[in-house]
């Protein structure tokens, strides 16, 4: 199917050039990286930009820069590159596990992490993992550079805090200082490629603190702060876990859609919270399910 809408195409060679171009179009140009969402939207007429700015020539965005306590993942890094990266697997296992659940290999070979958060669909798999690692979005636009915690970046379904003409240059992910164990549990309609009905990331840290984040059960992916508040400072037990499960109703606001009813999402979030919390705690203790195995 051809794209009915006409637009200009630019492929700038440097970041300043790209930022200048995007500024000139005053928000009416769309950055293109993997295109796995953008091209679907162009075909469907959901996006009608005056121009598409292909950022794939910007080499500096195609790197992961490792620091002691942080990995800055450039905007061109694809999910396949994350999955094939041994350091990501070792130091950011929840992100690694979540990346493996994104669509299919053929899509992951092109789809980027930064593009995924810019799409900001409620079901985006990368968000819960990034949220438990306190990710920070690096932006560059007409007004210069800025950084923003990922939790403030999501404003609503498909809505982000990106200013007109602004570009996500990378996502900084914090490597936990303490020993940790974590997991990403995803429920789809079938094993294999599907969007999440419920997605849940858990990170359990050695000082008995917990980070829990979810997607597809509310307008935006979020940290479950009430549940974290209850759990923090305590050792996980079945009794404590049931108290946490009782908070799920207050924590999420799922809707019914083509993929499942809201009642099913609510129920399964509880089931998954039990499994994911135990999986994370057991992994912290050196046991638990092997990385990448399905928790559902």
């Amino acid at each position: 199917m051809p794209i009915a809408h006409e637009f200009d195409y630019h492929k700038p060679k440097t970041l300043p050039e790209a930022v200048k171009l995007l500024a000139e179009y005053r928000g009416k140009a769309k950055p293109l990286a993997g295109g796995t969402d953008l091209i679907v939207w162009l075909k469907g007429g959901l996006e009608k930009p005056e121009a598409v700015v292909d950022i794939k020539a910007l080499r500096e965005l195609g790197r992961i820069v490792w620091k002691k306590d942080e990995a800055l993942i450039g905007a061109l890094i694809t999910f396949s590159e994350l999955i094939d990266n041994a350091d990501v697997r070792k130091k950011l296992p929840v992100l690694w596990e979540a990346s493996r659940t994104v669509a299919s290999v053929g899509v992951r070979n092109r789809a980027t992490l930064a593009g995924n958060i810019c799409s900001a669909v409620p079901s985006l798999d990368s968000a819960p993992a990034l949220l438990v690692y306190d990710a920070v979005v690096h932006l560059q636009g007409p007004r210069g550079k800025r950084q923003m915690p990922l939790k403030d970046f999501f404003m609503g379904p498909k809505k982000t805090a990106l200013a007109p003409g602004e570009l996500v240059t990378g996502v900084a992910v914090r490597i936990p200082k303490k020993k940790s164990g974590g997991c990403y549990a995803k429920l789809g309609r079938y094993a294999g490629e599907d969007l999440a009905q419920v997605g849940l990331a858990v990170l359990a840290l050695a000082d008995n603190t917990y980070r829990v984040a979810h997607c597809a059960v509310g307008p935006v992916a979020r940290r479950a702060e009430k549940i974290e508040g209850l759990l923090n400072g305590k050792r996980l037990s079945d009794i404590l876990l049931e108290e946490a499960v009782r908070l799920v109703d207050k924590e999420i606001s799922p809707i019914s859609d083509i993929r499942s009813s809201k009642e099913y999402r609510l129920h399964m979030t509880k089931v998954m919270l039990r499994r994911a919390l135990w999986a994370a705690v057991n992994r912290l203790a050196g046991s638990g399910p092997v990385a990448g195995s399905s928790l559902i």
């Binding site: 293109l32 295109g35 598409v52 299919s104 053929g106 070979n109 092109r110």
Partner: peptide, 23 residues
């Protein structure tokens, strides 16, 4: 024609891509 079925798969620079999602 939207990335879900794989029937348009080709290799691009050594990796499979969905050619329906490539300009």
């Amino acid at each position: 024609d939207r990335g879900d079925c794989g029937s348009c798969t080709v290799f691009m620079n050594g990796k499979t891509v969905r050619s329906c999602l490539v300009l």
